[in-house]
């Protein structure tokens, strides 16, 4: 008996959907199987995702080239996803502030930086390099792995599973020359998007 055309369509549709479910299931399973291989225990391993800032209070450190000009950089409160720096005054070329943050991955899934988005202060034009260093007029904002400010965060950087915490430095520097008029920059920001590897 010739099959009803509609029935065939249903069979094909169901077949495609089953195939899609199987593929997604295999992907998920491979993720789990990888973890099973690395697990010391025989019981099933549940994947965990735990990437974020290590919460706490961070004291700013003054970066200054001239003695006697070390103003306080204040302290900042760090939550798991957000760091907000309060108001700062930088009046001397060479002066700056550094904040030692910690990014953690205590989960069982490795992560990588998929994107770094730098947002310029309102009404300012900035030059951006590798997304984690932004120069706006006399000020330079950057995210680095070292206190010296040389090793920038870049897209693709890995944050391996269960690495614990990784130090990251947020640095702002008065990098230009003396100014003739007071200036204020408001709302500069960096956004880091971590996805699984």
């Amino acid at each position: 008996m010739q099959r009803d055309r509609k029935t065939e369509v249903y069979y094909v549709t169901i077949g495609i959907l089953v195939f899609a479910v199987l593929m997604l299931g295999v992907a998920y399973a491979s993720l789990n199987s990888t973890l099973k291989k690395s697990s010391a225990f025989a019981h099933p391993f549940v994947a965990t995702w735990d990437v974020g800032f290590e919460p706490g209070k961070v004291l700013g450190k003054s970066l200054s080239y001239s003695a006697g000009n070390n103003k306080s950089c204040g302290s900042i409160d760090v939550t798991e996803n957000i760091v907000s720096i309060g108001n700062l005054g930088l009046n001397t070329p060479g002066y700056g502030c550094s904040y030692a943050l910690k990014i953690r991955n205590r989960g069982s899934v490795s992560a990588k930086i998929d994107e770094i988005i730098s947002s310029q202060p309102s009404g300012k034009t900035c030059s951006v390099k590798e997304d984690s260093i932004m120069t706006c007029g006399n000020l330079t904002y950057k995210l680095t792995y070292d206190y010296g400010g040389k090793k920038l965060l870049t897209t693709g950087d890995r944050l391996d599973a269960q690495i614990g915490v990784l130090p990251v430095y947020l640095i702002i520097m008065y990098s230009g020359s003396d100014i003739e008029n007071n200036d204020i920059q408001v709302g500069a920001s960096f956004t880091l998007i971590y996805n699984q590897v």
């Binding site: 108001n87 920059q185 709302g187």
Partner: peptide, 13 residues
Amino acid sequence: STTLKVTFGNVTQ
């Protein structure tokens, strides 16, 4: 996926 954000307030020169 996790999105982390760092924001500056007023930076006065």
